[in-house]
């Protein structure tokens, strides 16, 4: 569904990604793990069209989307739940959701999609008319996910979905992602909770200094000594 080949990305002269290659099949959860500054968020943002790579290909559903504007990437069915939730605090929950459903591909079905999201996240139903800034952290993350799903994505990039949440809430959010995946959503997840993300992911890539150094099945990486030492502190 998604293939990244030889991706190079620079911030000015500083190279953030070098020759990154990865692939995601339909229906998978793929985790990307790595230390702070390894380039995880840069990779997500390059795939989502928020950053222009210097070279390389990003092929989504057969089309090269490298360097395409994010609103076009979104409209192809590649959604993003950005780091730090980024809900619009003074807009109501329902307005937040409606903004998410504005891409041409999903626009006509905004009303149905809204119903679907409220069925999926009943907590949001009670809070529809409330400014999103008044929600708890966990609710805001639910809203951010629902808002992204309003755009009818086929593949969603999750950047640190459990960041800043209580352990129980973090668990709930990751469970939600697994549920969505069971319903057919393909997911790429970048997560600070390496153990949890490797457990839920079918496959995973380890990113170090902007390059992929290791890849394999999630559970296999969990057993890998290098991963255990570097990211699990064992």
């Amino acid at each position: 569904m998604l293939t990244v080949e030889n991706l190079d990305l620079y911030y000015g002269d500083a190279q953030a990604l070098s020759q990154v290659a990865l692939s995601v099949q339909q229906g998978e959860i793929v985790a990307i793990v790595g230390a702070n500054g390894a380039g995880k968020t840069s990779l997500i943002r390059a795939i989502a069209g928020m950053l222009k790579p210097a070279s390389g290909r990003i092929v989504f559903k057969g089309a090269d989307i490298a360097g395409l504007n994010s609103h076009k990437v979104c409209n192809l069915g590649l959604g993003q739940v950005a780091e730090g939730r980024q809900v619009f605090p003074s807009l109501t929950v329902s307005e937040n959701l409606l903004v998410g459903g504005m891409t041409p591909r999903a626009r006509a079905r905004r009303a149905q999609n809204l119903e679907r999201m409220l069925a999926l996240f009943p907590r949001l139903q009670e809070r529809l008319a409330q400014p999103a800034g008044t929600l708890s952290g966990g609710e805001q993350q639910m809203l951010a996910i629902a808002r992204c799903l309003m755009g009818e994505p086929e593949l969603v990039l999750f950047d640190e979905p459990s960041l800043g949440l209580s352990p129980a809430m973090a668990h709930g959010v990751l469970d939600t992602i697994v549920d969505l995946n069971r319903q057919g959503l393909t997911c790429i997840i970048v997560e600070q909770n390496v153990a949890a993300s490797l457990e839920m992911a079918g496959r995973a890539y380890v990113l170090e200094n902007g390059a992929i150094t290791l890849s394999g099945a999630g559970r296999a990486l969990l057993q890998d000594d290098r991963v255990r030492q570097a990211y699990l502190g064992m």
């Binding site: 950005a82 605090p89 891409t103 755009g151």
Partner: peptide, 20 residues
Amino acid sequence: HAWLAIREDAQAARALGVNV
């Protein structure tokens, strides 16, 4: 709605596919 989203957080609006 797109305007309000941009006012609140242009980056987030962009991430949602709004043509900012």
